[in-house]
Every structure is written in structure tokens, then in C-alpha cells.
Amino acid sequence: MTLLAAEGLVKRFGGVLAAKDVSFALDAGEMLAIIGPNGAGKSTTFNMVGGQLRPDGGRVMLEGRDVTGMPPRTVCRMGVGRTFQVAQTFLSFTVIGNVQMALIAHHGQTRKLLGDAMAMHRAEALTLLDRVGMAAQAERPIGELAYGDVKRVELAIALAAAPRLLLMDEPTAGMAPSERAALMALVAGIAREQRIGVLFTEHDMDAVFAHADRILVLVRGEIIARGTPEEVRNDPEVQRVYLGHAGTKAAQRARRAHG
């Protein structure tokens, strides 16, 4: 069964049609990138899937269940995790404390926070931090970390909900090129190992061409192309309106990196 299906999504803001008949599907363990120029409708589509926006038309199906317009908290409880363009963490907490809080919320134990919350789910939190390469920094205040490490912790926080679907909004924003490559390689490995479907928006074409299994290209709210990285790279319309020379170079780098 398809993990996620968007069927004919439409969204209007006043007289502006931000998404027009947007349809796609995502399977478990697959990474699907949504790309396009500014104002293409990427965030609008992303937020309709995550529950931040209610579509004006169409529907969102999660493992065959209609979740259209459900609030983000409900969508999360159904097995959807999310990371944000600007990392969402508790800066006054330690690294492990951030992950523990996510685990407490996932297990529905927020009423127990009057007790010793930091004694709860430590082993599970450390396992998640180890998975993202941050276990050695578990006791550090998160405010002391480099931004690339904060993004890794945010990934651990998202994984604390044991998601089947992970939504990642500009996951490499604000990161150095080497950090971007490392983070996306980590996400790709986790997705395939744990059979998590990943839907992500991204401006870094190196990250897209290196790690996406399929790509969806939006322009002015409409899909103009879809397919494998190679198919999208060679699409004349995509080259004309979006990728151009920079996209070709990114695709070439991705092919060299993968032999």
C-alpha cells in the first residue's frame, strides 16, 4: 500500500492560486523531493500534507486513510514526524533533554512532568542520539552546539515519534556544504533502513540530486515535471524555468559521487 498520496490538492489565497491539482504518491523507504523557484507552491503543498493548511480541494491519504485538514498534532499521532527550516529545539535544555521531552510527548506522559522528567526514557533517547551521531554530546546544553549538530538533534527529536512518514522543510538550510551532505546521507540511510518515507523541500540541488529517489518540480503552483533525478535533470522545461546551468552541474556532481 502507498504510504502517502496527495490527490488533486488545490489551495487559494484570495485571488492567488498557490496549488493547482497537485498529485503525487510516496512509498515507505522512499525519498521524494519537491523543488521549484520561490513562490512555486512548495511550502503550500508541504503544509497541506502536514496539516498546517487545509486544502480548498483534493485530499491527503496516509496509508489509505483520509487525513485531509486534520490538525498537525493529530497527523503526528498517526505516524508523521517533521523537521523545520529553522530548527525547533529547547535551547535551555541539554541535548538528551530535548529528545527525552519528545519521547515523553510521544508516549502521552506529559502529565508526569511534575516529577523527574529527566529520568524518563534516557536509554531510548541515547539510542536515538547515537543513531544520528550525537550520543557523545548528550549532556551538553543544546545552545552550545554548532548549527549542523542542532539539526541532527532535531532529526532525533522527529524520530522519537517513531514516524512512518517524515516531512523535512529545507533540512539543510543554514548549514555549510559539508554538513549538508552528511545530514542528507544520514537521513537517506535511516529512511531506507527503517522504511520511513521522506518528503522534503530543498533549494540545495546537490542534496536533491544526490539523495532523492524521485523529484517533483512545481512552478506557479503546478507540477511541470516529475521523475527520477536523471529524468528531471534532462527535462527541457525544467532546465528552462528552474535548473539551468547550476542544476546541470549539481546533477553531474551527484552522478560522480555515486560512481
Rank of each mutant, 00 (worst) to 15 (best):
M48F: 10
E179W: 13
D206V: 09
E202S: 13
K11N: 08
D213K: 06
M1Y: 12
P37T: 06
A185C: 04
R54Y: 14
S23L: 05
D56G: 12
R226F: 06
P37A: 14
G174R: 04
A185R: 14
P236L: 00
R59M: 11
A176R: 15
V232M: 11
T68L: 02
C76E: 13
T94E: 00
E154T: 07
H245Q: 15
M134L: 11
R131C: 04
M1K: 15
G51F: 11
V10C: 15
G148W: 11
A257V: 13
Q194W: 12
G115P: 03
R195S: 14
D213F: 12
G133K: 07
M184N: 13
A246K: 10
E7P: 01
L103M: 10
G97I: 05
R152P: 03
Q100P: 06
K20Q: 14
F24W: 13
A117Q: 11
D235T: 01
E231D: 13
G174H: 02
V86E: 12
V241N: 07
I223P: 03
T110L: 14
F90N: 09
A18Y: 03
Y147D: 03
V95Y: 05
N234K: 03
G79E: 03
A5V: 14
L183G: 05
V153I: 12
V219G: 07
A33K: 07
R65L: 13
P72A: 10
A212D: 12
A135G: 05
F24A: 00
E237N: 14
L3T: 06
G133N: 03
A117R: 15
E179L: 10
V99G: 13
L186R: 01
R256K: 15
G115S: 07
P141K: 04
N98H: 02
F93P: 03
R111A: 11
V232A: 08
V10K: 12
G51S: 08
V208N: 07
P171E: 02
G41N: 09
R140E: 04
R152G: 08
A33Q: 04
Q252G: 15
Y242I: 13
T228Q: 03
M48T: 07
D149P: 05
V22N: 12
T228P: 00
E230M: 09
G244A: 12
A87W: 02
A135H: 06
Y147V: 04
L9D: 14
M205W: 02
V217P: 06
Q85G: 06
E237K: 14
A158G: 12
R180I: 05
G69I: 13
D27H: 04
G36H: 10
E63C: 08
A135W: 01
A25R: 15
V80P: 13
K11T: 00
V232R: 01
D56S: 10
I96V: 15
F84R: 02
G108V: 07
H245M: 11
G36S: 11
A246W: 06
G97Y: 00
N98F: 01
M78Q: 14
G79H: 04
N38E: 00
R82Q: 09
M70S: 09
A251P: 01
R77V: 05
G189W: 00
V67H: 08
D130A: 13
P55N: 05
G36R: 09
G41F: 00
G58L: 13
A33P: 06
I104C: 05
E30R: 02
